[in-house]
Design a protein around this nucleic acid. Structure first.
Lengths: 272, 272
DNA sequence: GCTTTTTTTATTGTCTGACTAATGCCCAGG
DNA sequence: CCTGGGCATTAGTCAGACAATAAAAAAAGC
């Protein structure tokens, strides 16, 4: 059993600053009735990771605004009932993603949004935890519309036969299971992963895999809330066939249309 | 003065594992003669940041290979003569960038290269610390060739008058100071920054600013080692003029040619 | 002999409380 | 008005302990 931690110090008056963490669910799962709390997935893992997650979401959501200074380490960690070490490690994670900046005397301040690594896979994941702004979704799909058709084009030119087979297999599973199921969504990711590998460009791959992963969150969301989306398989099939016959222009065009469709569906879901 | 830290424990035999950190320069600057060690810029800053930097470079360089397990925290930190906390914070930074993964009992292992956030600005910076592979440079410029012309196109359509003025001012400074000087390079970055802002797409902006920053390292490198590069100002001017007259197609085309030129120069510098 | 369960053990994870160092701010002196 | 030196505040580093986790090894069951 864990040693009982030093309780909240008696001098509640110290500063009037209330710690404004959004979710008041405890970081650690030591409450007795730990049944899954409805929709929200309880973060399972290390303490520093859980806290980074929570703070990250709060920053993205605007609960902590850019330029704002977080309460100091002692106060924050004791209010959260965790050690300074765990708190600091969480802050290091956020800092590594460009979201906060710490200096002695000044404290830890939230940086300007411009400096956040919005395309970091984890940040992107946090972004879709709460419904992201329509502007951001638009920006993201605009970026996909720039990179993915180009990627499809490169894939059509550089693909290996093995990669074609991987894509074919993934597509087969998608056809059978649809995106309503977990295996179907995994197959979707595998399809795109094989495509990305076929570009032989690891910078492009790094970018695409971040975005794909984030977008797949929206897919899961769509599957839950809106059964009326188009069947994505035909679109994928057209892309696949173009790549199989090494038709660069066709692959580009089909991918472009695939993304436009996905964007439409996503918009309908988030902002009907 | 800092308290003298516990020296290397006498039992040197403990495990045969030698800690293979590339640069044997000490992490902290407490050696008496702290004169700038020739080319390499001594990392100035927090201990955890310095260590993350060093380990990051070592991983990218291949000194630690994917799948390899780092020596445990106790051993590592004591060999480096730093505390476990500082060491752990460094590891958290690397983990946040997807480069390592820690689990109890197993230890901390370097993840597969596919999972590294290669487009993280810091990682990109570490990448250019040692001469990156020609493949990677090719990939990076290929990505630029996909995104930046599209960005220029969007900028031409969406730019505000104020942004045009910012670009004009930056260009003026570039014309006067060239990329040989620090102010000239800063102006170059400002030019691209204003352009990116003009796209009104924060996802694209996040990507571009990472890449721009990395590429500007190569610019500095080029300025030092190879005076024979083309004058970049005319290229920039053409892009600017196209954006000023809201000529989307022209902006795209001029940006494309600008990047091709930059790529040629870079290749000549790194792999003559 | 093979599978399943329990125990061991190595390693990261967390906690505590102290000290160090950087740096913004105020105030005295020019 | 500016300037430089203390002072106070905060992150940074340190040390050593114990807890939790998961892999590996041992024991139990079939």
């Amino acid at each position: 059993m864990r040693k009982p931690i030093s309780n909240t110090p008696p001098d509640e008056r110290s500063t009037g600053n209330r710690l404004k963490i959004s979710s008041s669910r405890p970081l650690r799962g030591d409450s007795q009735h730990n049944a899954a709390t409805h929709g929200h997935t309880m973060y399972q893992g290390r303490l520093h990771g859980a806290l980074a997650h929570r703070l990250g979401v709060d920053i993205l959501r605007g609960t902590f605004k850019s330029g704002e200074i977080l309460p100091n380490e002692i106060e924050s960690s004791s209010k959260l009932a965790i050690s300074r070490s765990a708190y600091r490690e969480a802050i290091r994670i956020l800092a590594a993603k460009g979201m906060v900046e710490s200096r002695p005397k000044t404290g830890t301040r939230v940086t300007e949004r411009e400096r956040w690594n919005l395309l970091d896979p984890e940040v992107l994941g946090w972004m879709f935890e709460t419904e992201p702004s329509q502007d951001f979704i638009k920006a993201l799909f605009e970026l996909r519309l720039i990179t993915e058709p180009a990627a499809a084009e490169l894939a059509a030119i550089r693909r290996s036969d093995e990669q074609v087979e991987q894509m074919r297999a993934a597509l087969e599973i998608m056809k059978r299971d649809t995106l309503q199921t977990e295996t179907g969504r995994r197959a979707d990711l595998e399809f795109h992963h094989a495509l990305i590998q076929a570009t032989s460009n690891e910078a492009l791959a790094s970018l695409s895999s971040s975005i794909e992963a984030a977008v797949s969150w929206t897919t899961r969301y769509k599957a839950r809330h809106n059964a009326l989306t188009r069947d994505p398989v035909p679109d994928h099939e057209r892309v696949f066939e173009a790549i199989e016959r090494r038709d660069a222009g066709g692959a580009r065009w089909c991918m472009e249309s695939l993304i436009r469709m996905a964007h439409e569906d996503t918009q309908k879901t988030f902002h009907p």
